[in-house]
Design a binder for these strands. Structure first.
Length: 555
DNA sequence: AAATTATCCAACCGCTACTGA
DNA sequence: CTCAGTAGCGGTTGGATAATT
């Protein structure tokens, strides 16, 4: 790309180059007063001069370049040009899958430390990595997808744990993990979701189209402010497809995130509950596990994306203006992660499991078949939904309130909510909307519970869901904005022992939500547990759905 | 085919940290 | 200790190109 520019520029000077005098603006201190320095794209001739200069004098002392070589560029510009384009051993061309994955992993650990990331990618520049990240971030932003894949979060978590175990690890990390952390398994939120009716406000469920379902199921919530409600459906589908084009593997296991709150409290809450969910719209999945990984780190509520410091090692918590959930599309498929939940569910539901259909992992190559994959997923979703609904009606018993409520909610959720944003999106969003509505935030405009119909087990006044105290406290104590912290330390263990985890979770959630909600939550959790076991997806689902709500006070 | 929109990426800008006088 | 110069980093911008309407 750059070469084409330069080739073009060889024949003519750009506007910047001709009429953009830069007389030592302070940023380019090398030029003396009155010297007109060129700006804009570099020409081949300028490159040659700079290369020649570096060969003779070596790197550094960039402000001397203009003096010694006659190049009318500020030292800063020279350094940048050299570092990003001229220095030897620069790797040109698109990022490889390995590089993409590494970038994602590094970003999960480092945040927007492009230079540090570049150090791990020989031949790549910080600018290159930054551009790569930002462009894909935007894509995911539009698609409403989370920042990081569960695998990355898990890896970051495991690394942080191992480091903590070995050498005490990062103090901040320890604080987060040990002192101020509460790990909340998926089930809690799943249960909350199952009992979404408890929450007074529910998301608006505008459209049930396949594209919308996939779109939102893959990562968005109507609460996600970063997704413009005005975006045309077709456009969104296109974006999703384009987005998926980067995927070589798992798409279905992505985790959407909530983030849409504008005020402080809601913002914190949003981050605290920066939940991501499995995209699988399968009711079974929802019943058994609901919450996926607390993805994304940097998930903030202002609808922006950024950078921030997600890693435990981060010394400070950066809260840039742009934050949003993100997951790299690049190559999760290469990770040794469990198969997408949907696949597991499909295998469970469909007999025999289709070999041609649901394997979007293999079918979603980087460059083709994306729309097909989306359509196929929609199809699969529909099939799974029907199947589960059928099963639900057969398996539930009148006497088992918890179980039936779970099943019914899962079932009706898709039918009535029409917002398959995520298997458990409603609960979380509802929970947040609770906080927000009570605090008079921007979520006041959220549609009331009336939008839901028969599926609601019960409805409660909003003031019961979250008290002002809770609103004040929860946001402060919860922090899931960082991948590492989002991944609680022991979700894997939790995967193998639901009951134990449930009790732990119950305690944690009780602490979080307060006594008012505790009993309710316990009931829901119990229902989720029963449902999970009944569906035979217990550990399987858990393994596929690492979800941790880590509440912590950042140092 | 033209207009519009989205994407990519090189370059710029502002800021901070470091170093040496 | 202060200050100036320098290097580097991260955010942002703007232009070219591609894709879409």
């Amino acid at each position: 790309m750059s070469h084409t520019k330069n080739e073009r520029e060889d024949g003519m000077l750009s506007k910047d180059q001709t009429d953009s005098p830069l007389a030592d603006d302070g940023n380019c201190g090398g030029a003396g007063a009155g010297v007109v320095l060129k700006k804009g794209p570099w020409t081949s001739a300028e490159d040659a001069i700079l290369i020649d200069y570096v060969k003779k004098h070596g790197e550094g002392n960039w402000n001397a370049v203009q003096k010694h070589s006659g190049l009318f560029r500020c030292g800063k510009s020279c350094r940048l040009r050299w570092a990003n384009h001229l220095r030897p051993n620069l790797k040109k061309g698109a990022f490889t899958q390995e590089e993409e994955q590494l970038i994602i992993e590094l970003h999960a650990k480092m945040g927007n430390k492009w230079a540090r990331m570049a150090a791990h990618l020989p031949g790549r520049t910080d600018n290159e990595i930054k551009n790569y990240w930002n462009t894909r971030i935007k894509r995911r932003q539009r698609a409403g997808l989370p920042l990081y894949p569960p695998e990355v979060c898990l890896q970051a978590l495991q690394e942080s744990h191992s480091s903590s175990a070995v050498n005490g690890g990062d103090k901040g990390s320890q604080d987060i993990l040990q002192n101020n952390s509460y790990e909340i398994p998926d089930v809690i939120f799943d249960s909350l979701k199952a009992n979404q009716s408890v929450l007074p406000y529910v998301p608006e469920l505008p459209d049930m189209s396949t594209s919308s379902m996939l779109m939102k199921g893959l990562g968005s919530s109507q609460y996600c402010s970063f997704i413009s409600p005005t975006i045309h459906r077709q456009k969104r589908l296109r974006e999703s497809a384009a987005f998926f084009s980067g995927y070589t593997g798992v798409v279905k296991n992505e985790c959407p995130l909530f983030e849409h709150f504008e005020d402080d409290i809601s913002d914190k809450a949003s981050r605290s509950f920066g939940l991501s969910f499995p995209i699988e719209p399968d009711p079974t999945a929802k019943t058994s596990q609901s919450f996926g990984v607390f993805s994304g780190s940097h998930a903030l509520s202002n609808g922006n994306f950024s950078a921030s410091e997600p890693a435990l090692e981060a010394v400070k918590l950066e809260l840039p203006s742009l934050q949003y959930p993100e997951t790299e599309l690049g190559n999760w498929g290469t990770l040794s992660c469990p198969p997408p939940l949907l696949e597991s569910v499909d295998a469970f539901i469909q007999s025999p499991p289709p070999t041609s259909g649901v394997e979007s992992d293999s079918l979603s190559p980087r460059n083709s078949g994306l729309l097909d994959a989306l359509l196929h997923e929609a199809k699969t979703i529909s099939s799974a939904k029907n199947h589960v609904s059928e099963k639900s009606s057969n398996s539930s018993t009148p006497g088992d309130i918890a179980e039936s409520s779970n099943f019914n909610v899962c079932e009706t959720e898709w039918e009535n909510c029409g917002e398959p944003l995520s298997p458990m999106g409603h609960s979380a969003t509802s929970l947040f909307s609770e906080c927000i509505s009570a605090s008079g935030s921007s979520l006041d405009e959220q549609p009331p519970a009336e939008n839901f119909t028969e599926s609601h087990v019960k409805s409660e006044p909003g003031d019961r869901v979250l008290t002002p105290e809770i609103q004040r406290e929860a946001p402060i104590r919860l922090d899931s904005t960082r991948p590492d912290s989002l991944l609680a330390s022991n979700w894997l263990e939790q995967a193998s022992g639901y009951d134990k985890d449930q009790s732990i979770m119950t305690d944690a959630i009780a602490t979080l939500l307060g006594d008012d909600l505790t009993s309710e939550y316990k009931n829901m959790a119990a229902g989720a547990s029963i449902a999970s076991q009944a569906w035979g997806l217990g550990s399987c689902a858990w393994n596929n759905m690492p979800a941790v709500c880590q509440m912590s006070e950042l140092p």
